[in-house]
Simulated scan of single mutants.
Amino acid sequence: MARVLMVLFPLAALGVLAASFWYVAHRLRVLFGLTRPWPVRLGVASVFVGALVAVGSAAKSDSAAVGVLNVLGGYVLTSYLFLLLALLGLHALHRKRGLPAPRSGVAAVAVALGVTGAGALWANRLSVEETEILLPGLATEVVVMHISDVHIGHHRGRGYLAKVVEEANRHKPDVVLITGDLVDSRAAFLPGELAPLSDFDAPVYYVGGNHEKDVDAVRAFELVAQQGVRVLHNEAVETHGLQVVGLDYMKPDEDTFDMHPSDDKRTIKSVLPGIPLRSDVPSVLMHHSPVGARYAAAAGIDLMVSGHTHGGQVFPFTLLAALIFPFNRGLDHQDETQVFVSQGAGTFMARVRVGTSNELNLLRLKPGNAPVRVAR
């Protein structure tokens, strides 16, 4: 079934895109009184595809020029999304109330640019969200700073990473957990870009995500380790009365559909049971994506921390992400295992946030039993 979905999903996406090109071009032609349809359709498709190429081809480059095109491409894609939504909304309104066509066209473009601009400004904000989590067997409170999806590269550089580290240190955590997608392109490998990682005041543990694999995971792990960060590869370490388990980015099992499948033949289902864990010490599992929670529960994991979803990052993908990921944002549970998912400290594809926020997650782990929950 997973293989079938891997074929059907991109085909469905291409179909939706093609339909959107036709609709946007048609509505712009009608609203602005353009007579020839094909130049408009070709223009709309060309702008979108060009922006998509600029966004999708930048991971393997450290060029500043490519970086500029990458960021601009993200803004174009976001503007296109909201232009489509605005045209749909105004089309319905126009049919009911008979708004003048040119005015509707101008309004649609204004809405698209306005929402994209506001989302770009909002994406520069970084907040710290605090959550209290009860863990059985914990002797004393442990303050964890959970950081995910910073995406250092063309969107964010050394200055933003320094801001993340400074904000984390200000809250004086006992331990820092970074759950992948720390890097977004080879621009993160330029000299000094990852240097702020060495400025954390607490021990730091890190696992990779799908973007490290897309860029160069081996190089990413080397540079991160050089900053004094402990990179975990399918292993457990003890710190502050916790067992911290770090998994490489992998699929939950062989059958589950994943939009970002790993080429790793191992799965959470096959790897996690082979990691020895003490039953008398609470465990925290780090995996980039919040998949495979049922295997974490079967292994007796107390808390799983992940990122990857960005909470959908931009409306209406905020709604879609909630459908795709059973664990999308915040604190949830799988049987007796608690699952926490960060919306991420950075952005991908577009340096825009609409309906979500860049966040660091301060997790106050306290002794006690979590409320009894009904199994999913």
Rank of each mutant, 00 (worst) to 15 (best):
R186A: 05
R186D: 07
A188K: 11
F189D: 02
L190E: 12
P191E: 03
E193A: 06
E193R: 13
L194S: 07
A195N: 10
S198I: 07
S198K: 15
D199F: 03
A202M: 08
P203W: 07
Y205E: 10
Y205M: 05
Y206Q: 04
V207W: 03
V207N: 03
V207L: 00
G209K: 07
G209V: 01
N210R: 00
N210M: 07
H211L: 09
V215A: 04
V215C: 06
A217G: 05
V218Y: 12
R219H: 13
R219E: 15
F221A: 14
F221V: 11
V224F: 06
V224K: 01
Q227V: 01
V231F: 05
H233V: 06
H233G: 06
H233I: 02
E235T: 05
E235Y: 09
V237H: 12
V237D: 12
V237Q: 12
G241N: 03
G241L: 08
L242N: 05
V245G: 06
L247F: 02
Y249S: 00
M250N: 05
P252N: 10
P252L: 04
P252M: 10
D253E: 13
E254H: 14
D255F: 14
T256N: 11
T256F: 04
T256K: 10
F257G: 08
F257L: 10
F257A: 10
F257P: 06
D258E: 15
M259A: 15
S262R: 07
